[in-house]
Design a protein around this nucleic acid. Structure first.
Lengths: 155, 155
DNA sequence: TATTGTTATACTCTATAACTATA
DNA sequence: TATAGTTATAGAGTATAACAATA
């Protein structure tokens, strides 16, 4: 922390755990996460969906998939997906289709109505995320770069 | 403000909803949020706490407060806090104290053990958030500025 | 024998409404 | 009368374990 020597060009970090700057950024990220989450739940609620239902529907609206895979994406137990799909199906937003290649598998796919709701959800989310409009184009490019670096190669 | 001429210096944004750059940044923020949330739940779980319990304990470790206020901070109904505090109290991490000024109020405060657990939780979180270490000091300063701008005056 | 989806069970979080004890 | 905390209730998400159908 205090008087580190830091020899090289751009010292990567003096001591990531205690550095006040890092703690401040961590705090800010926490705030972003909290706000984002709130707004996601709110947007879901406006469409009479729970957060989990909205996440599953959003996932399926990109690509139908086996129940098992949904569980992996959501990082929860497969048994939970049964109930979530049940409720989405009861509302006519999702249907279970047989997989021609493997009769054990059920493919969950959004109905037309489900696609519409997913689209509406995505739109209200983009709207909610508009704090980004505060930033100029250059700043958004900069933010994109920093977030990519933070997230590593994967993103 | 559709086809605004945007006279000033740095054009703030062409059309925040559809601009590919903005969508890309939104996507990245979504990834950060998901990862952050996962790691939070994971850290809580390592201390045998649920996410909600960890959030309440973290809150109280900064400052003891009336149950009602916890509900406001967590944006949930006050009746829910009763159960969460019950479970934290049963584990000896939190206690209910009378408020000398108002006998209706109960102040929730962490025990010594609760303070220790809260500290451990915070440490594992900071550890989990270490992707920031990828960034140089300058980059973190830049990120801090961008996040502040995004979040508006409040932060 | 292994895998997919399901059921059964138990726990936690959530909102709503009614209750109590204070104010 | 209004407020703080609680209780009761019901719905949803979660993990665990056991099951049927299929591979």
């Amino acid at each position: 922390m205090a008087t580190s020597s830091s020899p090289s060009s751009a010292a990567p970090s003096p001591s990531p755990r205690t550095d006040p700057l890092t703690l401040e950024v961590v705090e800010l990220i926490g705030t972003v996460v909290a706000r984002y989450y709130e707004e996601y739940e709110e947007a879901a609620s406006e469409h009479s969906l729970t957060g989990a239902q909205a996440r599953v529907l959003g996932l399926l609206s990109i690509e139908p998939m086996p129940m098992r895979r949904i569980a992996k994406k959501l990082k929860c137990e497969p048994s939970n997906i049964t109930g979530i799909i049940d409720r989405l199906e009861a509302r006519g937003l999702v249907e279970r289709r047989p997989d021609p290649a493997d009769r054990r598998v059920k493919l969950a796919a959004p109905t037309e109505e489900g696609v519409r709701v997913a689209r509406g959800l995505r739109d209200s989310l983009n709207f909610a995320r508009e704090p980004l409009a505060e930033l100029s184009r250059e700043e958004r490019v900069s933010l994109r770069g920093l977030l990519r670096r933070m997230l590593g190669e994967g993103a």
